[in-house]
């Protein structure tokens, strides 16, 4: 409890110290951002850096980021790599299979805007053309530290969410995100 009280100023300790009060928004957001489970989903080169982020040196699990193999259990999708047109439909499908609230980090130049394949006939120039994106992470490929930074940015965003506004859905999806085909 001491750590919680020190680090989370919104929890007000009652005298005696056995009960803590916090807003429901705070508690929900706190649990959400401390256990963000990404989908095990790699598309191209960036996926290798994503794997490196899970592995020994960078150890993503200490941030509560622990890969899940099925979209049904995942909170966040790292779109790590080039989105080919053939892959666009499966990505939309996987995105729809994830439960709300769900977040997307577009990892790398290709997922942001097409990257080195900006003039290719076979590449979707940016995953935001097909699904809403929360954090854009530039780099080709971004380093694992950069992916961590993206996750921290996403946590900051989650901490600002209000349950009453969006019924638990992501802000972006409620406020005029692209309609999924």
């Amino acid at each position: 409890m001491g750590i919680v009280l020190d680090n989370l100023p919104k929890i007000e300790a009652l005298p005696g110290g056995s009960i803590a009060l916090a807003t429901s928004d705070f508690l929900i957001n706190w649990s959400r951002n401390s256990s963000m489970w990404p989908l095990t989903f790699g598309l191209a080169c960036c996926a290798i850096e994503m794997m490196a982020a899970y592995a020994s040196r960078f150890d993503f699990e200490r941030m509560g980021v622990f890969p899940r193999p099925t979209p049904r259990q995942a909170d966040v999708m790292f779109v790590a790599g080039t989105v080919a047109k053939k892959m666009a439909d499966p990505i939309i499908r996987i995105y729809k299979q994830m439960p709300e609230p769900k977040f997307v980090i577009a990892m790398g130049g290709c997922a942001n805007c097409g990257g080195p394949f900006y003039d290719s006939y076979a590449v979707v120039k940016g995953v935001d053309k097909i699904i809403p994106v929360d954090v854009y992470l530039p780099g080709c490929p971004p380093r694992p530290e950069a992916l961590m930074y993206a996750v921290i940015k996403l946590q900051e965003k989650i901490r600002k969410m209000k349950v009453k506004n969006y019924h638990g859905a992501t802000a972006l999806q409620e406020t005029g995100a692209r309609k999924l085909s």
Binding site: K85, K86, A88, Y121, A122, V124, I130, S181
Partner: peptide
């Protein structure tokens, strides 16, 4: 390699890309 919806054969020199729903 290309999806079934692909129009034409991309590596031909006279291939003209027809923008699809993803472009």
């Amino acid at each position: 390699l290309t999806p079934e919806t692909q129009q034409g054969h991309p590596l031909r020199k006279d291939y003209v890309h027809v923008p699809d729903s993803y472009d």
